[in-house]
Design a protein around this nucleic acid. Sequence first.
DNA 1: ATCTTATTTTATAATCATTCTAAATTTAGA
DNA 2: TCTAAATTTAGAATGATTATAAAATAAGAT
Lengths: 151, 151
Amino acid sequence: MSNITTLTSALQQAGMRLTPQRTSICELLVESDEHPTAAMIYETLKPRFASLSLATVYNTLDTLVGLGVVNVLGHAGDDKVHYDADTEPHVNLACLSCSKIVDIPSEHVTHLDAEITAASGYKLLGARVLYYGLCPACQKKQARQAAMKRN
Amino acid sequence: MSNITTLTSALQQAGMRLTPQRTSICELLVESDEHPTAAMIYETLKPRFASLSLATVYNTLDTLVGLGVVNVLGHAGDDKVHYDADTEPHVNLACLSCSKIVDIPSEHVTHLDAEITAASGYKLLGARVLYYGLCPACQKKQARQAAMKRN
DNA sequence: ATCTTATTTTATAATCATTCTAAATTTAGA
DNA sequence: TCTAAATTTAGAATGATTATAAAATAAGAT
């Protein structure tokens, strides 16, 4: 669970200016547990910045990803890229039906780094652990629909 | 490590015909350890099927993914989607410099399914464990370049 | 074999998330 | 306030993927 200054100070230490747009994007990333997409960030911030551009959102996200303080989650049910400000080792679990993504702390994932380094000799720089399935709510929904069909 | 019949019989059991195009796509997926993209498959098979269409490649891949016998790897260094016929739990390790992806068997990953199911109540349908880093060769290359700069 | 019908492939157009570009705006420092 | 560099913006361009409709293929009946 990272806080806002983790992101903003990363931008500053990279020699970048802390504009209101960038600050708001950082805040939204940290405060939201929705794993937002670029479009979601743009829509959320549009009321606050009437002239906000999608290019700004993409630029800021790319920078944060390049600095290693934000992770990319691709192909998590939909065809959009989701962003995650939590870069600690954990599992992202996406529901294929409702497209929500939840975070799962995992004992095994915390040990993966050492295991992979030992097995491969690679110098590790990042990780995405993405599982997909059906959340409990959508499992029930499917069960109901199956029951409807049988009648 | 899955074999060709795993994929082809999955198509048949789903009530689909085993056309030469589909068979060749299955073979290529299983025999290649390159984690090919749709475009790579298309280019490789074009000499054999002069009139092959990208749509056929995408359709077949989507079907195989839907049947759970092929996995999707997104954002592995480039912006294209890679496909992996190995659906056993394992780590995909991508080199950020040369973009090659290698498979790493992992003791911890094999236990992740049970851990996540217990923690979340989700019904798991698939997984993607993707780590990024620098392969030993590219590490050496970078070290050489750094040494050059110092002189 | 030939016909009939459903499936599959193909070619091409359409979509849409993302990236690029150049102009306008804002900021930091003199 | 002035100047130069950084940033944002609007809109066009890109390119992977998807959709569509016509042509080709295959299975089963006659």
